[in-house]
Amino acid sequence: MRRKLLLLALFVFAGMFAQKKTFTNPLLPSGADPYSTYHNGYYYYTHTLGDKLILWKTKNLADLKNAESKVIWTPPAGTEYSKEIWAPEFHIINNKWYVYFAADGGSNNQHRMYVLENKSEDPFKGSWEFKGKIAAAPDRWAIDGNVFTYNNQLYMIWSGWEGTTNGQQNIYIAKMANPWTLGSQRVVISQPTYNWEKQGDLDDPVNPPHVNVNEGPQFLQHGKDVFIVFSSSGCWTDFYSLGLLQLTGPDLLNPQNWKKHPDPIFVKSEANGVYAPGHNSFFKSPDGKEDWILFHANDNPGEGCGNKRSPRMQKIEWNKDGTPNLKIPVSNKEVLPIPTE
């Protein structure tokens, strides 16, 4: 009897261990615009919460629901950045932590990008100093800032308006003089041109009246190949998807050096029950051998841009021509192995 109980305990333990090596999407019940940073053996994860910035800490992104978390910043009331805090990203630059986010004072027309700095090696410790607004010239509506280093130069890419009214969202790029200041004029490197970048419902009184959307740009490098993956069409539609820009020349500020691929690279899968996949980021497995995508999506059609969007992740591959192969969004029923350790 004792032997049977011991075998049963070992079987249960083995099952628990095996379960930890696999996962199913979504990672959390809700969470748009997911982003993670890997540092000293831990993933530091965040997503849009609207009224605050929260950081999660875990060794395994597939186990986010059990991760340690902390509110690291709540905006002061009555400022231009008190409300609608969107798409935060945490970065380590020159051994300091920075968080970039978009926010406004209560009107979407006021959206601009802002940055905080923390000099502590541990982002859960130290203090987060508000460094201010990151504004281009001219200073226009801006969201979804992503910061990266290429050839020892710091850059920012983001989604913004050309003018002062809500007409269409383009992808812009500029050099940075330091982690909180742009050091060049903004340059537009992508505008909505294909039908898959213009899907939306002009008759919807709740959502903005434009459908020409390029947003959520993310830098991606594989060997010598450089890409920007971006989200397209209205997030309130099931046609929200990912497009691809590819660098073809040495100067990132030359729009002619960015080639847009004619078809989206990641779209909804009705067969798998995944709708409006978009606003992604990328990360590597702990051993550095695998490339993964983090993205949000809905489980059902017509769920729009609200809190039903949930974070998911899946492994990506690379095509023979060097471009990323994101495949199709996997079903919530599909059991996946965790990133290799």
Rank of each mutant, 00 (worst) to 15 (best):
P138F: 04
P286V: 05
P179I: 11
K131E: 09
N212D: 14
L182V: 14
Y240S: 10
E129S: 02
F227I: 03
P138L: 08
K327P: 04
K96H: 15
K96G: 11
Q256Y: 11
D63K: 09
V187Y: 07
W56L: 05
Y98H: 09
E215A: 04
T58H: 06
T48L: 03
L7W: 04
D63E: 13
P262T: 10
K327Q: 13
S232Y: 03
R112Q: 06
E215N: 05
N178S: 15
P192M: 08
D122C: 08
K20L: 13
T248M: 14
G106Q: 06
E121M: 08
P29F: 04
F11K: 02
A32P: 00
A135V: 07
N109E: 13
N214L: 06
D238V: 01
G322D: 09
N66Q: 08
N178Q: 14
W128S: 04
I228K: 00
M176R: 00
K308D: 11
A297G: 03
L27K: 06
K315L: 12
G249C: 07
Q199S: 11
T58C: 04
A62K: 05
A9S: 12
Q19W: 11
L326C: 00
K333S: 14
P329K: 01
H39G: 06
I93C: 06
I92R: 15
M156L: 15
E162L: 10
